[in-house]
Computed example of a mutant assay.
Amino acid sequence: MTRHHRHRPSLRRAAGLTAALVGAGTLAALATPGTAFADSVIRLPGGTAHGDGLSITRSAESARVSPSLAANGASRTAWVSGQVTLKAPHLKPKKAGPTVGAGGEDKYPGTQGVYTNGAAAKVSSGYIVGCQVNIEGLSGGLSGALSLTAPSASANLTVPLSAGQVKFVVVTSRDIEKPGTYHLGYQNAGLEIQNCGGYAQARAFTTVETTGEFHQKVNLYGKPFSIG
């Protein structure tokens, strides 16, 4: 008896269709080289912190994370931007003294590398950067952390980090000598992370410190984000 298998052409057509779909997917993948190495843009929420007679607000914060051009996994760059507003209408006017330069946490524990030089107040903004450290609840005063101060708000800062290390990086700061409302901003300031073979995180911080008889220090922290 001769049996006819009429379904075989359908199977061949189905197989051909599957191969065509797989081929199309492969071509699509090949048509978008470098997608895995594209920059990642992170939009970050703003926030406000209040002191006695003053307030600080951060807004328009974002980070654009770029992988290492050397593709070595131990370095990457975060291009950070943000706006800071200080409202201090009741400060007692006071001139700033000579600038002594950044000393960092090692020299001035608990300062986050931020301290006044005699002005009525000083506002500083930057980032806490850690390598293989969860900085979700980190709020300063770490032993061994350093502070690097940029010569301008758009300069690139090199931040060498080893596993378990945290550094405070001041991006921009300003002496406040009289009461008023002040604005600080930075656009695409580069944080170049080096020597970190594990995951890296960062979070913004803004600090205002006043001088005189009534001393206060107000800190505003941002949302942590991954640098890869």
Rank of each mutant, 00 (worst) to 15 (best):
M1K: 05
S62E: 12
A119R: 10
Y186E: 02
G113W: 10
V159S: 07
L27H: 14
L54W: 05
V166P: 08
G23D: 05
P89C: 01
A102K: 05
S226R: 15
C131D: 04
G51D: 07
L86T: 08
S124T: 09
C196V: 05
I56R: 09
R12F: 11
Y186L: 08
G222L: 06
A155C: 02
A63S: 14
V22K: 12
P160G: 11
S173I: 02
G137I: 03
S10V: 13
N156D: 15
H50L: 09
L142G: 06
E105L: 06
V170N: 15
R3Y: 12
D39I: 00
V123G: 05
Y221Q: 06
G118Y: 03
A102E: 01
K92V: 01
T172A: 04
K178R: 11
P93G: 13
L191H: 02
K87Y: 00
G180I: 01
G23R: 00
G82I: 02
S147E: 09
L157D: 03
R3S: 12
G144R: 10
G97F: 03
S143R: 15
A119D: 12
L11F: 11
G113N: 05
A200W: 07
E192P: 03
V100I: 14
H5F: 06
P93C: 05
V22N: 10
S139P: 00
E136F: 12
G73S: 08
R3M: 02
K217V: 03
A63F: 00
A96K: 12
S125Y: 05
N188G: 03
G126K: 07
A155T: 03
S162G: 14
A102F: 08
K87L: 04
L148T: 10
T77V: 11
A145M: 06
L148G: 06
G180M: 14
P33Y: 10
R174G: 04
G47L: 04
A14T: 11
